[in-house]
């Protein structure tokens, strides 16, 4: 499912990132890559940008971009 559909407090593992070179490049630089566990800190009640936690970092992510990130709610294999 896309990251954009997740709710506050939920965690998931990044499985796939679609989108263009620029979008992917920016996400990669911030550490958002396949195999990383992310947690939704604020889903902004379903509209507007989300706040996600990646380890100790907090990242504001536009909803459009969040639709390009596909996650698995089962989490990452440890």
């Amino acid at each position: 499912m896309p990251l954009a559909m997740m709710k506050s407090g939920e965690s998931a593992c990044i499985k796939k990132i679609t989108g263009g070179r620029t979008a992917r490049g920016k996400l990669t630089g911030l550490g958002l890559v396949c195999g990383k566990e992310v947690k939704i800190h604020s889903d902004n009640s379903g509209s507007g940008p989300l706040i996600i936690a990646l380890g100790d970092n907090r990242i504001a992510l536009g909803r459009g971009l969040a639709h390009k990130i596909f996650v698995d709610k089962k989490g990452c294999e440890k």
Binding site: A23, K26, L30, I51, D56, R58, I59, A60
Partner: peptide, 9 residues
């Protein structure tokens, strides 16, 4: 453009 931005502590 895409909106992605770090929120520093």
């Amino acid at each position: 453009s895409h909106f992605v931005m770090e929120l520093p502590p």
